[in-house]
Design a protein around this nucleic acid. Structure first.
Length: 481
RNA sequence: CGGGCUGUGGCGCAGUUUGGCAGCGCACCUGCUUUGGGAGCAGGGGGUCGCCGGUUCAAAUCCGGCCAGCCCGACCA
């Protein structure tokens, strides 16, 4: 591996594909539209999973697992749900050498099977709330696919909850969106806009869909997590009923929420540069790589590698995820480039000159070349590195936030918005009257869609950017993944 | 599904026009020398040239058919 990638500025799309493959996050599989997540990419996903799972547990959720196959008829019980998913379903028609009585759907999401079970489990208000999450794979037969961003099969988590009251369910929906926002900002160092989706963009079957949107390096938006308030739509379709405190039969109010391996793509596109990945320390598989530098002289080699091993161990003891790259068959220069491609936040270089001076050289991935290098005493190196890692984490977030701010516009007219969208892109904050016609007209004309109706609203949203009527809300238009 | 392109060691390609020993770069293996920003030299392994048929003394190359993949337009975490 480890040759140059297509420069980001030249062709962002190719740069992305190159980086994902060269950094060994993923590779194409023999099946069109699907991919293999390689150990390094999976390690990144596991860290995201662990962060999310911890937050889910902290808020009272439990994990469970529901089956991959769903009876076809289940998909058809909720009218809008059918509408939304039928074109992208994978159907199993044969099993055990025979044609099946009823085809099975490979889950595109588990709403229907889970709600069919909830109908059995929920009988009383005492059974509520039900707070279940599952980690699973799902399949959606997409036309155009891209590594991590849109593949036929992908990994995600889907939470499905049922509540006694509307308020409680609404609160749950917002709480989970907030968890996604925290994951993006505090762990993945990627600032997001929190808001509600328009009718056209919401999940089929939901009353309201909320989402977080992040801005990628090419100034396109990426939806990084969604949380749906489902009302009683699925409860009615699947006849979930409970006896309330007044002995009256009622349908529960529900939510569902999900985030996927797409987050890996987000991290690549939010932080990466021409040298490859740049990973935020909190979710990086390796926070630090120690590279010993030694000539072939056997004694020198041994003493340098032994010292490098001690440095690694000290960092592990300090709670830093550190590895030692003691391969003898490649040069230090090769290793520098390789670990930069893989986005390791901090590199520790240790050679004979350093040992003589009881120091090591620290190189920050977020600052290129000499600029990011500093010498640090071997004594207390673990603590020093811990501090530098925190600085890198913060610097990445600040840089991404500054980029988002620079690329957030408030165009004064439709013409101006169209021009900005065509020239540079980014988030366009603009008034919207709320009509689907205006939304569609902008999409047809500019390819930009309403990403979210932000929770943070100005006192006066002004006028609709498309029709000039009084605006109902300020919304964010952007071209999106 | 409509339009454009491509199928040759693992990857990227040349060779096809004008038929004549299947080649190059990277990667891989072995050895020696190297190692502070992608090491050098020497040796080596690996290909039914997408598939089927035809023409010919001879086909990666010419002819016919088929298949697969990529890119661009209608769906989407």
């Amino acid at each position: 591996m480890a040759e140059k990638v297509t420069p980001r500025s030249e062709d962002f799309s190719r740069w992305y594909t190159d980086v994902v493959q060269r950094a060994e996050l993923a590779d194409y599989s023999p099946v069109r539209g699907s991919m293999v997540i390689r150990p390094y990419g999976y390690g990144l996903w596991e860290n995201l999973q662990a962060a999310l799972d911890g937050m889910f547990k902290d808020t009272g959720h439990q994990n469970a697992y529901f089956p991959l196959f769903i009876p076809h008829s289940f998909m058809q019980r909720e009218a809008e749900h059918v509408e939304g998913f039928s074109p992208e379903l994978a159907l199993v028609t044969h099993g055990g050498g025979k044609e099946l009585e009823e085809p099975l759907v490979v889950r595109p999401t588990s709403e229907t099977i889970i709600n069919a079970m909830y109908a059995k489990w929920i009988k009383s208000y005492r059974d509520l709330p039900v707070l279940i999450n599952q980690w699973a794979n799902v399949v959606r037969w997409e036309m155009r696919t891209r590594l991590f961003l849109r593949t036929t099969e992908f990994l995600w988590q889907e939470g499905h909850t049922a509540h006694e009251t509307e308020e409680e369910a609404q609160q749950e929906t917002r709480q989970m969106l907030d968890i996604y926002a925290r994951l993006a900002e505090e762990w993945a160092a990627t600032p997001v806009i929190r808001g509600r989706k328009s009718e056209a963009e919401k999940f089929a079957g939901a009353v309201d869909t909320y989402a977080i949107e992040a801005l990628m390096g090419d100034r396109k938006a990426l939806q990084a997590g969604t949380s749906h308030y489902l009302g009683q739509n699925f409860a009615k379709a699947f006849e979930i009923q409970f006896l309330d405190r007044n002995n009256e039969l009622r349908h529960p109010y529900q939510t569902s929420w999900g985030a996927s391996t797409r987050l890996v793509g987000m991290i690549v596109m939010a932080h990466g540069d021409d040298q490859g990945l740049i990973l935020p320390p909190r979710i990086a598989p390796h926070e630090v790589v120690v590279v010993p530098i030694a000539r072939s002289d056997a004694d020198e080699r041994h003493s340098v590698v032994a010292a490098a091993d001690r440095v690694r161990n000290e960092m592990v003891d300090t709670g830093v995820r550190a590895i030692l790259d003691d391969r003898a068959e490649v040069t230090p220069g090769f290793k520098f480039n390789e670990w930069e491609m893989k986005g390791v936040p901090v590199r520790v270089e240790l050679g004979p000159r350093d040992l003589a001076g009881d120091q090591a050289v620290l190189a920050r991935r977020d600052q290129p070349g000499r600029e990011g290098k500093q010498a640090a005493p071997l004594a207390g190196l673990g603590e020093t590195v811990r501090r530098v890692l925190d600085e890198v984490q913060n610097a990445l977030f600040r840089r991404a936030l500054a980029f988002q701010e620079e690329n957030s516009h408030r165009p004064g007219s439709y013409g101006e918005m169209k021009e900005i969208l065509a020239d540079t892109g980014g988030f366009q904050y603009a008034g919207w009257c709320g009509s689907a016609a205006c939304e569609q007209a902008v999409k047809d004309d500019t390819q930009a869609t309403i990403r979210v109706i932000p929770f943070d609203q100005p006192d006066d949203p002004g006028v609709c950017i498309a029709c000039g009527e009084k605006a109902a809300d300020e919304v964010v238009f952007a071209k999106a993944y």
